[in-house]
C-alpha cells in the first residue's frame, strides 16, 4: 500500500517537475505576456479613474477597492484561458490519445497534477507583475498573512473547479473537431463571467444570476474578492464550502462525461 503510494507520488512528482521546464522553453512568450499585461493594467487604471471622476462608489465599491480588484483580476486572467481542449483535440487528431489511455496511470489525475503545477509556476511567474502593480499602479495588498492563505486556498479550489469544467468541455473534442471555435466561445464567456473585466457586484442582477450559475466566478471573482478586501475573511469557511460543493459536482460529472465521450473516439491514424 505504502509502496504503491510512494510510487504514485514519484510519478506525479516527475510530471509536475516537467511543467516549469516547459514554461522556460518559451521564455519569449512569457515576456510578451508580461508586457501585454502591463499595458492592459495601465488602460484599466486610467479607465477606472475616469469612471470614478464623478462618482464615489459603484456597485458598493470605491475607487481603491475597484483598482485593487481589477489589477489582481487582470494578473490572474490568463488562468481562464484553457489549453486542455487543444490538447485533447491534438491528441485525437494525431492518435496520441490511444497511447495516453494505455499508460498505467490515471488519465485525469495526470492532467490535474500538470494543471496544479502549472498554477504554481503561474503564481511565481506573476510576482514581478504584482510588484509592478504595487509600485506603479497603486495596488494595495493586505498585510495580514491569513488573508493570503484564505486567498490561495480559494484560488486552488477555483482552479480545480475550472479544470474539471474544462475536462467536461474538452471531452467535446471526442465528438467534434471544431475545437478552435469552441474554445474561443468558451474563453469569451469565461472572461466575462469570471469577473476578470468588471467586478460581478457591479453587474445588473440578471447578469449576476448568470454568473452565479456558471463556474467561472469561482476562479477569479471569489478568490480575488478576498485579496482586494471585498469579501471579509470571516466568510472564508462558507465560501470554501460552496467551492467544495462545486468541485464535488464537477468531479462526478466530468468522470461520467469522459467515460461516455472516450467511447466515441475515432483515432485518425497517427
Amino acid at each position: 500500500m505504502i509502496q504503491s503510494l510512494r510510487r504514485q507520488a514519484k510519478i506525479y512528482g516527475a510530471i509536475a517537475a516537467m511543467v516549469p521546464k516547459e514554461y522556460s522553453a518559451y521564455s519569449i512568450w512569457v515576456w510578451m505576456q508580461f508586457i501585454v499585461q502591463i499595458l492592459s493594467m495601465m488602460i484599466f487604471v486610467y479607465f477606472w479613474r475616469a469612471v470614478y471622476a464623478d462618482t464615489r462608489t459603484l456597485g458598493g465599491l470605491d475607487l481603491q477597492q475597484t483598482i485593487n480588484y481589477i489589477l489582481l483580476a487582470q494578473i490572474l486572467m490568463p488562468i481562464v484561458e484553457t489549453r486542455l481542449i487543444f490538447q485533447f483535440g491534438f491528441m485525437v487528431r494525431n492518435g496520441g490519445v490511444a497511447v495516453e489511455l494505455l499508460r498505467p496511470l490515471d488519465f485525469q489525475g495526470r492532467f490535474f497534477i500538470e494543471n496544479l503545477a502549472g498554477l504554481g509556476v503561474f503564481a511565481i511567474e506573476k510576482l514581478p507583475l504584482l510588484l509592478v502593480a504595487v509600485v506603479f499602479f497603486g495596488l494595495q495588498l493586505p498585510t495580514d498573512p491569513l488573508v493570503w492563505i484564505v486567498f490561495l486556498i480559494s484560488l486552488t479550489l477555483g482552479a480545480s473547479i475550472l479544470f474539471l469544467f474544462d475536462w467536461i468541455f474538452a471531452s467535446l473534442a471526442f465528438y467534434s473537431t471544431e475545437t478552435w471555435g469552441l474554445s474561443v466561445v468558451r474563453i469569451g464567456v469565461a472572461t466575462f463571467f469570471s469577473g476578470a473585466l468588471v467586478p460581478l457586484t457591479m453587474m445588473p442582477t440578471w447578469l449576476q444570476d448568470v454568473a452565479a450559475a456558471l463556474p467561472f466566478a469561482q476562479t477569479i471573482f471569489v478568490p480575488v474578492s478576498f485579496l482586494s478586501g471585498i469579501t471579509p475573511i470571516a466568510n472564508a469557511l462558507q465560501v470554501w464550502l460552496v467551492q467544495l460543493a462545486w468541485l464535488a459536482g464537477r468531479l462526478v460529472l466530468s468522470g461520467w462525461v469522459f467515460r461516455r465521450g472516450v467511447r466515441e473516439v475515432t483515432v485518425q491514424g497517427g
Binding site: 469612471v51 464623478d54 462618482t55 459603484l58 456597485g59 471544431e178 478552435w180 471555435g181 469552441l182 474561443v184 466561445v185 474563453i187 469569451g188 464567456v189 472572461t191 466575462f192 473585466l197 468588471v198 457591479m202 453587474m203 445588473p204 447578469l207
Partner: peptide, 25 residues
C-alpha cells in the same frame, strides 16, 4: 464558427462597457 467566434469576444468587451457606462453619467 470562425466568422462568428470573434463576435463572442467582442460581446464580452461591449457588455463590460455597457455595465459600467449605464451606471455613470
Amino acid at each position: 464558427i470562425g466568422a462568428s467566434s470573434t463576435v463572442i469576444l467582442q460581446i464580452a468587451g461591449l457588455l463590460t462597457i455597457w455595465v459600467i457606462m449605464s451606471q455613470v453619467p
